[in-house]
Every structure is written in C-alpha cells, then in structure tokens.
Design a protein around this nucleic acid. Structure first.
Length: 883
RNA sequence: GCACCCUUAGCUCAGUUGGUCAGAGUGCCUGCUUGACAUGCAGGAGGUCCCCUGUUCAAGUCAGGGAGGGUGCACCA
C-alpha cells in the first residue's frame, strides 16, 4: 500500500468507479426497506450541464446516497425533457445553416430530423450528469416524448376534456411573432423599457371637437374599435354615445364608458383595441365591440391596417407617428417607462393577439392545489416559498396549452370536415361518430411542454397503467428544484397529481437558489460569465465541485461561485486521501476486521466517543436538509478532530516496531473511525470515499451499500472527552508560548506543571503526547502551592499552570506584559459572569442548567485567576527587585 | 404598487427554537522540508453582527421604523 501516490488524483478514479457502479446496477432500488423516491427535474435535451444542474443534482445525490446507505429502497429517477420551443428552434437553426427551411421540409420530415438530432445530442447532458457522480437509476431513464409518457399526456388531456376542464376558444393570448407560437402567461417576461407616451387627437364625428388619448403603442390604433372614458368622469360625460373618427383610417368608432378607465391617467380617454390588448379585449367583450386583427402571426400589419398593410410592427409605428405628425394629430410626446413583455425563449417582444386556442380551466384545479400546501401535504423548504406559490396559485388564470409548433405532443383532437364535430380520442378515429364522414383532420398544434412535465412524478412510473413501480414509488418523498421553476413546474405537478392521482406528488419541495458568478451576477452564456462545471471537474474532480457547491450556502439563497471553494474541496479530498495513506502505511499485515472495540488509551476512548456525536449530528443535518451544515461538520470531524488530533496521537503507538496490544488497538480504532467517516462523507464526496473504502481491509464491494453509521451509546465516554479537552488545552498553551518565545520547533523543552491532585494522573498519561505535540522532553508535576521558578514563562488553563523554565531565553519584562494582558482578559470574562449571576432576573428566570453552567464557569475562572495572579505578583516583584 | 431575500472578519459566506454565537473557508502576518499530506503543520492579528427604537433577566437572533443592494409578481393605456 505504500504505492499510493502522495496526492489524490480524481482522474484516475472517477470514471472507473462510476462505470463500476453503473455496470453493477447499484443505482437501482434494492432491498426491502421503505421506499424513498426523488424524481429528477428533467433537463432539456438541448441543454448542457451548467452550475445550476450541478447544484441541483448534487443535492439529490446526497439524499439518494444517504437514504440508500440507511437501508431505504431508493429510486432517483432520471430523464430528459423534449423542450418544444427550444429544441424546435435549435433544429430549425441547424437546418437553416444547411440552407433548409423548416416549412419547406414539411412536418413529417422535420420531426424526423428532430428525432435524429435528439438521438445524437439528447444524451449529452445525461453523460454530463454521470460525470458529476449522480447515482440515479439510469435503467428507468425516461424522456417526456417517449411512448409511455405520450400515453400519459393523451390520457390526461382526455380526462380533463371530458370533465370540461379543457376547452377551446377565441381569446387574447401571448404571441411570439418570432417563434410564431402562443406562450402561457408565465412564459412572458416583463422588462422595464424606456418608451414614450404619445398623445393623439381623435376628432369627434360631428365636428364638435376632439378627444386626446394617450398610448405607448400608436400602431395598435389601426385596430381601435372604440374610445372609452370613465363613467364617473365629469369632463367626458357629454361625449359618451357619440362617434369619433379614428385618424389615419377615418373609421367611425363609438365613445363608450367603462369603469376600467382610470381618469387620473393620461387624459382620461382610452383607445380600445380588443384585438391587440388583453385589457381592451375584456372591455370589448363587455361592450360587444368588434375585434380587428390589424397584425398577423409574424407581426406584420394586415389588410385591416389599410395603407399600413405589409409593414412590420416597428415600421408601422414609425409611419403611423410620421403621418400623425404631418396631420398635426400628435399633440404631445412624453418619455415614459413601461414594462414590455418578452418571449422567455427568444427575448423578442410578445404580441397580444386574438386566436383560437386550447386552455386548461385553472380555478377548479387550483383549489385543491392550494389546500395541499396550506394543509402541509406538500411542504416547501425553506417554508417561505409556500407564500410565493400560494399567491400565484390564487391569482392563476386559465392556462393556454396549445403551441403552434411541430415538436411536442400533438393535441389528440380531430375536426370533422363534414359536420365540424370536434372528436377527442386516444387513437386516430376512422370516421366521424356524428356524420360518418371520414374526412377528419387532426389539430395541427402541439401541447405546451410543461403539460407533459406536469405529469412527470407519475407518468415516469407507468401511469396511466397501475404498475408495480407506481405502487412502490409514488408519491415521491422529495423534489429538489430551482426557485425559478416553481410556477412552471412545481405548481403544475401539484395540481396535476391531485387531479389524476388524488394525492400530492411529493412530500417536500426543496428550493435552491442560483449559482452566481464571482461578481454576484447571474451566469450568462452569451456574456461569457458562465463557469463550466465540467471544466471544474476536469481540474479538481467532481467531489471538489460538489463540496464547493454545497458548503457554505443556505437553501433557497443565491450563492456565488468561487474557485477558492473548489480548491478547498480539492484540498479536503487530498487531506483525507493522505490520512488513509497514513493508516495503510502503518497497517502491515494487521487485519482489524472482526476485532472488538475496547479502547483503553485516552485518544481512542475520546475519538470513539466523539464519533457517536458525529453520527447523530450528521444524521440530524441531513434529515433537516441542512446540507451546508452537513458538509461543514464532516469536514471538521475529518480534518480538525481525526487528522489533527487522533492521527497525531496515534503515532507513538504505531511507531513501535513490534506488534503490541497498543498498536493493534490503535489500528483497530483508526480503521473503525476512518470507515465511519468515509461512510458519512460518501453522500457528498462519493468518489474519494469509495476509492479509499476499497483500499481498506474489509472494504470489499462498494461503500454505496455499506450500512450508515448509527450511534453506539456504549462508546460514549464523557470522562475521556473532558480529559482530552484538558490535554489539548495544555498542548495549545505550550505551543502558544513556544511560538511567542521563538523556540525553534525542533527544540525540546522542559516543563513544570502545577495542578491539583486529580489531574496528575492525566498529565502522566499524556507524556508521549506532550512530547510529540508540544515538544516537552521532560516534565515534573507539582501542586498549586509549590514554589515556581522566577525565570520562566507560564500559562494557566483549566486549573493547570504550565511553566516553562526558560532562563536565558526570555525577558522578564515581556513575560510580565504577557501575564498582564492575560489577566485583564480573564478579568473581563469574570466580570461578565459575575454580572450575570448577580442579576436576580437571570438567576430567577433563566433555565436552571444555564445558571448552573454560569456558576461552574465562575468557579473555573476563579481557580485560573488565582493561579495567574500569584504568578503575576511573583514576576512583578522579581522585576522590581531586579531593578 | 405588492411581496420576498440580503447587509456579520479584507473577500465569500455559516450562524436551527433568543442564553460562550461572535464562527468557517479564503486572504494576511510569524515560524516550520516534524517519516500521511507544503493541496501541508503550528501560532497569530482582524468584526459598533447596516442604523434607530422597542420587547426581554438575556437580541446578529424577536417586533416596529429607516438606509443600501438584489429578486419575484402585478401592472393604468
């Protein structure tokens, strides 16, 4: 084993281990423990692994590996999402580069190409997830467009349709003229834009005057069918019912009154364009106004726009303004900042447009979904996200689900060309059930991608079939996802699951924030500020990346990515690697497996006792999803307790050449503790923990199924912990003195300890450790009362006065100053304790154990203080007499 | 406009239900080729926990107000 390299090299390890895990099918659920399910948020097939994915999947993997070791029958179910718009746009763009237009290719041929593209590139991200170490069950991998999921989508559509929760109708929708499809409300992103508010004169038909209306979008006036004023508005009361001339087109339109109009805004007169504004659409419905589509699907003005027909919307705006100006109808232009909707995929301005679309009626579905969260069937972690969810759910509007795209689940509706009957069916019907015509045409549109994602927690398990998997693994235990997807996905899964499964899809929803760049900005591919997780893995290994992503972050908050954190993670893997190396180098032919733990020496009693605390603490953190605490704590146990203290203290016993009971016991304890630490580390650092595990005696098989450590009360040893703390404190005091006195590390010194009788034994036991860790060659023990040497440096801790006689090496004056500082500090602390204890409010109201604690503290301080003062006086008088 | 988050050491951030909570990593300073590890070891310096006012025996921690930074939702054209 001495062949182990001095530095841990993840490249040698990660690929090999992952392959082994996957080949052995370790990721699939096994055993007959209780089931534990996590549905993986399916990344888009167009996607490449970014830091968000890396964080998201690290968290899921931690839970998965932890529960698996704890004995659960764990299913972490992976897959990918077909992402209609993104994929269609991507493939269309690729074709365009070859000089092929999507429309020329035709639907069937185009879809053929998309599938080809999917097979070629769609698996890329799943390969990348493997590099991260994700232990999801690839044998159950699903794709939102695979056959089973398609069945689920059609079933869902039909059931909702039959309950009249899906309907088709003419409504105003969000339209992206670039993608040429509708978008749901949440797919529109509002951005504040500097624009203008144009005040336009509309002359009255009877020539008796004019009204001035204000608009940010003058080109839409071409579709105006009314001007509205508030019924309460005195200024315009006489105008209601009159006709007004729409400038440029000279169309006569009515002046109506509607309380929607805000008299305070602009001039108080509002142009009404039911065809191109959602609010105006509603006004139009109330007043039975005609709807004019002045703009088409590409944002080009239609025939209805008269002379402006054929212009695109931006050109039309310019021309409309120029013409108004020329005619003197533009009364005023003011700067105005307003929110403009943009397509979340292509970032083009969206256009409100009236068209015939399919919608899901949301109110009846939202009600139980609200209840589920209110009643705690679904818990958001952190809790505050339930308010965000509820607020959205309570104000939800109907969901437009049809998309004018080819790539996606085709809407299972056929229209009879003979009698116009609408036929909803699982399979293509042969003829119309009403009129018998066989001329049927399927709706050309596909469904919103999120319609299929909404079914993910159960469609992936076989629904609508009542499969074994569905019975075993539904509902899921946890969903881990990013904040920006709560509405798109989480909300929709909840109401879909309640509707189709009659149950919430998962118990807990973990919401994590974004990984920001070093400057605290959102990482952006186009800006080049993204950091590629794969590069980080190449440089430092997946374990280091995982650790960096989890350590020091709070669930739900954004977190800056820093290279230093990855380096810290890498250093940690290396530290552990070398601790293991040390153990293996000392192992010889010793086989610790099967040996009883019966620790006699102090460090062993101590570390085993500490380990019982670790196992409890770590488990608690994981149970409460405190990933950061888990990472920090395991780091601390390994580095600061196991490596810094236990290994160092184990060295004397191990250095004995011959086999000895001490040596064997120490090896047994080292083996046991190291194994336990590896297991507790495994969820977050799966590779290095497995690699070391395999090198340990008895480490056959995989750490993935090594039993999760449980606390053993018999090994808890408070006395050992107390004694160890004292010993550590003494060693630290000596190190401190040595450093301050510039004693070279190699130089051994002599010490005198002044202490109470019951501590003599401890110091005697500590001989080897004091020698090794504090450089104390010889020492002698005295009682508190005995005489101290004058020319010496001293420190007091835990009732022990450490005295290093350093005549010649020290300056008495300096020592005096040192003591004075220590004395002052101790006085301050004593004062604080004294104040607490003399406060009747505290003594009477605080819990008893806290009062007790303060009292004990007071006693301990007092003892130390007396020692310190005695020494202080001695040095002081020595100084004075020396003058 | 409404809601939420953040403000703690030079930097990046932890601090569960109020009671050693003033922490970690990194950076900085001082020593160290100590036979696991210089991706390391040892020691050290660094903070009005944004400000104000309350509640309490006790407040980074709770309440109210304010300042600065960020995000989401909704928009009156």
């Amino acid at each position: 084993m001495e062949g182990l390299p001095k530095q841990y090299d993840p490249h040698q390890v990660e690929k090999k281990l992952y392959q082994e895990w996957e080949e052995n099918n370790y990721f699939a659920p096994r055993g007959n423990g209780q089931s534990y399910t996590i549905p993986m948020p399916p990344p888009n097939i167009t996607g490449e692994l970014h830091m968000g994915h890396a964080l998201n999947n690290t968290l899921q993997d931690i839970l998965t590996r932890w529960r698996r070791m704890a004995g659960d029958r764990v299913l972490w179910l992976p897959g990918t999402d077909h992402a209609s718009i993104a994929t269609e746009a991507r493939v269309a763009a690729t074709l365009k580069e070859e000089g092929i237009e999507k429309k020329e290719l035709g639907r069937e041929e185009f879809l053929q190409r998309v599938w080809e593209w999917k097979y070629k590139y769609g698996g890329m991200i799943t390969e990348q997830l493997r590099r991260l170490g994700s232990s999801c069950d690839w044998s159950r991998e699903r794709f939102t467009m695979d056959e089973g999921l398609n069945r689920a989508v059609i079933e869902a559509f039909i059931r909702l349709y039959n309950k009249e929760l899906i309907y088709r109708g003419d409504y105003i929708v969000n339209w992206c003229p670039y993608c040429e499809t509708t978008l749901s409300d949440i797919e529109v992103e509002h951005e504040e834009k500097d624009g203008h508010l144009y005040h336009i004169r509309y002359p009255l038909a009877d020539g008796s005057g004019e009204l001035i209306i204000a608009t940010t979008r003058p080109e839409t006036m071409l579709g105006d069918t009314a001007v509205a004023v508030n019924p309460e508005d005195e200024r315009y009361r006489g105008f209601v019912g009159k006709k007004i001339i729409l400038p440029l087109l000279d169309r006569e339109i009515p002046i109506i009154s509607d309380s929607y109009v805000d008299p305070e805004f602009g001039t108080g007169a509002l142009k009404i364009t039911p065809g191109h504004d959602p609010n105006d659409f509603e006004v139009g419905r109330r007043h039975d106004l005609p709807r004019i589509n002045a703009m088409d699907e590409k944002g080009i003005m239609t025939e209805a726009a008269g002379p402006y027909a054929g212009l695109d919307r931006y050109a039309a705006r310019k021309k409309v303004l120029a013409d108004l100006e020329e005619k003197g109808l533009l009364s005023r232009v003011e700067d105005y900042e307003h929110a403009v909707g943009h397509c979340y995929r292509c970032d083009q301005e969206i256009e409100p447009l009236v068209s015939k679309q399919w919608f899901v009626k949301m109110k009846p579905l939202a009600r139980p979904a609200i209840q589920a969260v209110q009643e705690g069937d679904v818990c958001f972690v952190p809790e505050r996200f339930d308010r965000i969810y509820l607020q959205w759910m309570e104000e939800i509007r109907d969901w437009c689900i049809s998309r004018q795209l080819w790539w996606g689940h085709r809407i299972p509706v056929w229209y009879c060309q003979g009698c116009e009957k609408e036929i909803v069916a699982r399979e293509e019907p042969a003829d119309c059930p009403k009129c018998g015509s066989d001329e049927l045409e399927q709706d050309p549109d596909v469904l919103d991608t999120w319609f299929s994602s909404a079914l993910w927690p159960f469609s992936t398990l076989g629904w609508p079939e009542n499969t074994q998997d569905l019975q075993s693994f539904f509902p899921a235990d946890v969903l881990v996802t990013a904040r920006d997807i709560i509405f798109f996905w989480v909300a929709r899964m909840i109401f879909s699951s309640l509707e189709f499964m009659d149950q919430a899809p998962f118990d807990d929803v973990l919401i994590h924030g974004l990984i920001l760049d070093t400057d605290g900005k959102k990482m952006s591919k186009s800006m080049g500020t993204g950091i590629d997780p794969l590069e980080v893995i190449d440089d430092h290994g997946a374990d280091a990346l995982r650790f960096a992503l989890v350590n020091g972050f709070t669930l739900g908050n954004d977190n800056r990515f820093r290279h230093e954190k990855v380096e810290a993670g890498r250093n940690f893997t290396n530290k552990l690697w070398n601790a293991a190396r040390f153990f293996l180098m000392n192992l010889g032919d010793f086989d610790p497996s099967g040996r009883q733990l019966n620790p006699q020496d102090l460090p062993s009693r101590w570390i085993l006792s500490r380990m019982q605390t670790w196992t409890e603490v770590i488990d608690e953190h994981l149970k409460s999803y405190r990933f950061s605490d888990y990472a920090r704590e395991i780091y601390e146990y390994i580095w600061n307790e196991f490596c810094d203290w236990y290994i160092e203290m184990a060295k004397p016993a191990l250095q004995a050449e011959a086999k000895s009971p001490e040596k064997e016991e120490t090896l047994t304890v080292l083996w046991h503790v190291l194994g336990g630490l590896l297991k507790m580390l495994h969820p977050i650092m799966p590779f290095v923990s497995e690699e070391i595990w395999k090198a340990l005696p008895g480490g056959e098989g995989t750490i993935m199924y090594a039993p999760w450590p449980r606390p053993n009360k018999d090994l808890v040893d408070r006395e050992a912990e107390e004694e160890m703390e004292t010993l550590q404190s003494v060693i630290r005091s000596i190190r401190n003195i040595r450093q301050e006195m510039n004693i070279p590390p190699g130089r051994k010194v002599e010490a005198k300890f002044f202490l109470e009788g019951d501590q003599h034994e401890l110091l005697k036991k500590g001989k080897d450790y004091l020698n090794r860790l504090a450089g104390i060659s010889e020492y002698s023990l005295y009682t508190w009362e005995q005489e101290r040497p004058e020319h010496a440096v001293s420190a007091v801790t835990r009732g022990i006065e450490v005295v290093l006689p350093l005549a010649g090496l020290m300056d008495l004056k300096e020592e005096f100053n040192r003591l004075e500082k220590k004395k002052e500090k101790l006085e301050q602390e004593m004062e604080r304790v004294e104040k607490q204890l003399s406060n009747p409010g505290f003594v009477n109201n605080a819990p008893g154990h806290l009062v007790q604690k303060e009292k004990e503290k007071r006693e301990a301080f007092k003892a130390d203080y007396e020692l310190l003062c005695k020494r202080y006086r001695q040095v002081k008088s020595a100084l004075e007499s020396g003058k």
